[in-house]
Computed example of a mutant assay.
Amino acid sequence: MIFLLGFYQKASSQSSTKFTSPLDIPLELSANFGEIRANHFHTGFDIRTNERTGYKVYASADGYISRIKISAGGYGKAIYITHPNGYMTVYAHLEKFAEEIASYVLNEQYSKQSFEVELFPSHEKFPVAQGDLIAYSGNSGSSGGPHLHFEIRDASGETYPLNPGLFFKLNDTITPRFFNLHLYSLDVLQVEHERFPIKNNGVNYLIKPDSIIVNSATSGIGIEAKDFMNNSGNDFGIYEFSLT
């Protein structure tokens, strides 16, 4: 079910900011930004790694490594890079870090006597240039299979997730499909709802029946829909839609 929800959008134009893909293989997704999960919205791209680990992961832009985290669950092994343009990129579910970073992390683990660590190196410790090797893709943490979870965040104040699709051109020529409209009556103790099929006449999507009688003073609308992408058998969430 897709509801009318929005994500924070940075006011400045994203087109002036150049990020490169963190992998040197085709940018194909297994999950996109904003998809509904059990208890949250997906805040980045899950990039396919051909069902294997060990692909080189590169810094997507100049900056410095500001955070390194290792946990048994969640993002597993993850690197956070702060960029001078006010953005942050996140690289998660990694197999291992690049040698210099791995050595630093191992020393900290021994010092803290803990596998799980969260580190905040100074900005002089690990400066990176766009394209520098920082890690290798993996399947660590709460990952259901090998892939790279990649995020772009607005880090100029509070940290907000941004849609990486605003910064990358994806091979996506397949339009979303809409299936049902759901009408919710919200002015009763027990929420009631009706479902109305949506049909495509080849030009537009139309609701059957042509008109809907609303008996509630306060109502909500939900849309059941899926998006699709070239070279992928996955279903994706809808990033944005409007009703007219």
Rank of each mutant, 00 (worst) to 15 (best):
G6E: 14
A11W: 01
S13D: 07
S15R: 11
F19T: 04
S21Q: 01
L23Y: 09
I25N: 02
E28M: 03
L29V: 05
S30D: 12
E35I: 04
A38H: 14
A38G: 03
F45K: 07
F45N: 11
Y55P: 02
V57H: 05
S60M: 02
I65Y: 00
S66P: 03
R67D: 10
R67W: 14
K69V: 13
A72W: 13
Y75R: 02
Y80N: 00
T89K: 10
A92G: 05
L94Y: 12
E95T: 07
E99K: 06
Y104C: 11
E118H: 02
G131T: 00
G131I: 02
D132N: 08
D132L: 01
L133Q: 06
G138E: 10
P146H: 01
L148Q: 04
H149F: 04
F150N: 04
D154F: 12
K169D: 09
K169N: 11
N171L: 05
T173V: 08
R177G: 00
F178L: 13
F179L: 15
L181A: 11
L186V: 06
D187W: 09
L189V: 13
L189K: 10
E192M: 12
F196P: 10
F196Q: 03
I198G: 10
K199W: 01
N201E: 01
G202E: 05
S211V: 14
I212F: 13
I212W: 09
N215V: 05
K226W: 09
F241N: 07
L243W: 10
L243P: 11
